[in-house]
Design a protein around this nucleic acid. Structure first.
Lengths: 207, 207
DNA sequence: GCCGACGGTGAGCGAGCGCTTAGTGCGGCC
DNA sequence: GGCCGCACTAAGCGCTCGCTCACCGTCGGC
């Protein structure tokens, strides 16, 4: 509940903005391969094979293997930022908005774990320009969370000693979900989202 | 304070258990290279070059590139587990022991970030047998933290709804320090350790 | 019914990979 | 002082990588 659209446990691919169809199939294949084996260990032959195409077909739609990673990273960060902004801009107390932001952000990192893994852990494989672009998006992500925490402190809802440090810890906690979450594990993305929202409210001294 | 020995901000290498000297130099070079570029993107020529040797020298001391990663991972996990055990076995309340465990564990992940990065993020590059061995160590790490939290709950010091979930979150928070911590950043490992100890005590409802 | 555009293929290039092997220089022991 | 053992090197093998190129089938417009 909240970001609406897809809060599914399994991973339905919302890459509908990527066209044509062949380019999208290649991109989805690349997300899976990068998430499973890492960018450097993934071969262009593997990506093309997963998409049911010959190795050469990849280069009709993408200039290089790195361009694939860049596109994935850009779209993923846009989506993550969108989720946080939606929660941050909603009506309600800072407590409610923070719980909302954390639970939807965590649900995304758990439910769409393959995408989140690539987005969060393969940043170093990008070249300097692409990396700089993505880092700018990350600063916006940080600013959204920090904004809610500052609101809560100003309203007297939160008791926080170090706003920047706490923001960092909250985001770190959410992001790392992509590393350990498993669909075979005992928890659903919704359960982890609820647990984490509670833990984060404790961290900021809410209630 | 607490784990004593090396709480240095910079990274003094305590690989003195690795002998002879040439093998240690290669291993230290491998840690740096793996941390900077990842296991798959690192070449054996790069490792040997950093150690001031020819590419072939590596194979006198290690059978394969993977054996290097395995040795690093094993030693690193042993050290991390040792740090947690030392804190967990100390005299004092669960609150004190948890704060101690988190702050020393975090100090290690921040101060020895290059090692921690390899240890925590390159696990998937190991073969099945080596990975199984390392995963067993991770379960012991988990058990140490869970033990302290259970003690605190039993003693009425902590207020925790989901012990397993909270243990997971606490460890996740600490481990992810290796991803974002930078020696050029505004915080020392000691400061992050103190901040995180406070945040974790809040998460378990201490005080 | 032919034709050009275009998404796609098969084969393969040059480079760099992990790893091997034949040989070299040097320190320690009789 | 001669020789053995061994840590180390120069060269290179076989392979796979990212990427390219000459070619091909299909499909809409006239």
């Amino acid at each position: 509940m909240s970001t609406a659209e897809e809060t599914t446990g399994g991973e339905v691919e919302p890459w509908e903005e990527v066209t044509p169809d062949a380019a999208r199939r290649l991109l989805v294949a690349a997300v899976e391969a990068f998430a499973e084996r890492g960018y450097h260990a993934t071969t262009t032959r593997d990506i093309a094979g997963r998409a049911g195409m010959s190795p050469a077909a990849l280069y009709i739609h993408y200039k290089t293997k790195e361009e694939l990673l860049h596109r994935i990273s850009r779209i993923g960060h846009d989506k993550a930022l969108d989720i946080l902004r939606t929660a941050a801009r909603r009506e309600g107390s800072a407590t409610r908005r923070l719980a909302d932001a954390v639970s939807s952000f965590v649900r995304w990192h758990a439910g769409r774990r393959t995408t989140a893994r690539v987005v969060q852990y393969e940043l170093d494989a990008l070249g300097p320009d692409a990396r700089a672009e993505i880092l700018a998006l990350r600063r916006q992500v940080d600013a959204e969370v920090r904004g809610i925490i500052e609101d809560g402190v100003a309203a007297g809802e939160f008791d926080v000693l170090d706003v920047h440090g706490t923001t960092l810890a909250v985001l770190s906690l959410c992001i790392d979900v992509a590393r350990w979450f498993s669909v075979d594990g005992p928890r659903t993305p919704e359960e982890v989202g609820a647990l984490y929202a509670d833990l984060v409210l404790r961290m900021v001294g809410a209630e």
